[in-house]
Design a binder for these strands. Sequence first.
DNA 1: TTAAAAATTTAGATTAGTCTAAATATTGTT
DNA 2: AACAATATTTAGACTAATCTAAATTTTTAA
Lengths: 220, 220
Amino acid sequence: MNSFTEENYLKTIFHLSVKADGPVATNSISELMGNKAASVTDMLKKLAEKDLIHYVKYQGVSLTNKGKETAIAIIRKHRLWEVFLVEKLGFKWDEVHDIAEELEHIKAPELVDRLDAFLGHPSHDPHGDPIPNSHGEFQKNEWILLAKMNPGQTGILSGVSEHSTVFLQYLEQQGLLLGTRIKLEEIMAFDGSLKLVINQSQSLSISREAAKNLLMLHEN
Amino acid sequence: MNSFTEENYLKTIFHLSVKADGPVATNSISELMGNKAASVTDMLKKLAEKDLIHYVKYQGVSLTNKGKETAIAIIRKHRLWEVFLVEKLGFKWDEVHDIAEELEHIKAPELVDRLDAFLGHPSHDPHGDPIPNSHGEFQKNEWILLAKMNPGQTGILSGVSEHSTVFLQYLEQQGLLLGTRIKLEEIMAFDGSLKLVINQSQSLSISREAAKNLLMLHEN
DNA sequence: TTAAAAATTTAGATTAGTCTAAATATTGTT
DNA sequence: AACAATATTTAGACTAATCTAAATTTTTAA
Ligand SMILES: [Mn+2]
Ligand SMILES: [Mn+2]
Ligand SMILES: [Mn+2]
Ligand SMILES: [Mn+2]
């Protein structure tokens, strides 16, 4: 069995692999996990030893099939627990990420599938991320960053790429919930901030920083 | 914050304190936890340092108020999760102890009380043990061991003092569920085994070993 | 009341995961 | 191509939790 720590490394490597399409760099893992690069190197050796990653000194890493399966299983648990916390226990979407960070490491093999059934096999977590099924399959969302859209375009806010409480509370305060229709009116030349119209009525301005974490689906 | 390991020691010491009324011996902790006595001594020093136990070299330990509160909080979580697993996820009572052993260490402070409310503030876990409330209060059950009863006496099976899967499956197979009315007919002179009548109809024989783990309430 | 047995603690070692500082390899730039 | 900057790895050290073997204390019982 893998330790709590090994699982967190695998999950981090998985998330980084999705973005960058080459191998994942030691430093990027170090940065995302808040560990020093030297510590990361030690762990990479151990994960390679266990056939969870492909590791070539100085050349970065990628997940083996075994490693990918393991990572996806953890992500599945994380997202199912987030649904549980919001749907059943009444937590708000900005309160559940850290709790799920603990719950995702519970090992009991029966538990996940029973939880999934209890929740009615949800397809997405409270932040819009797809939940892998028990075979590890899940659809890739056709998301486009709000920050990449052009003035005049419209879309539905369907996900967030940052799960921190501060960010999610900010969104809620601005009325930016998942499912909100957003029209990008204008991009300010001065600071790149975005002028929006939400739900065809309310107008609102947000920073480019914020827009980089908002995932949109085109209407159709 | 206390580590996973420290929490398990506190819980073990609490359970041992309930039985033996003097201080708890190093060896008894060692035996129950499956660790060597030398390891226990190391941990006792650490727990004493953190004011969770009273520890006098060679004289055994007892919990401080702080230690007792901590232990009860963990037991509360353990028992609530067991109820969740049985009531909501459909696990059987013999499958949940080990899973709860993991879940009891989840730290999120909001979680417990929300779970408690979601479950409708249950008073007992699936094995008949009382669940402490959020202030750490819980009634002591007036249990008597089946093995201590006399022939002719009748009672309701209300708890078990052993939570292992093998034992619980054995009980289920014999039709010995919580709530069953049991009349003790006779104690065999040869091996001390007990002849029972359950629910006023079915007759059944069990070992003294089994009877030592069955907790009865007198009818009234 | 003293010697043997049992319980407990100490000493010294090991493993996982982390760190800092130093060494080495890779990449980018003149 | 050579040097500087950056990225990565190695070396050596630390903490938490465990172990074995040896030393010490307490208990039992002759
Ligand atoms: Mn999350
Ligand atoms: Mn995690
Ligand atoms: Mn239990
Ligand atoms: Mn535990």
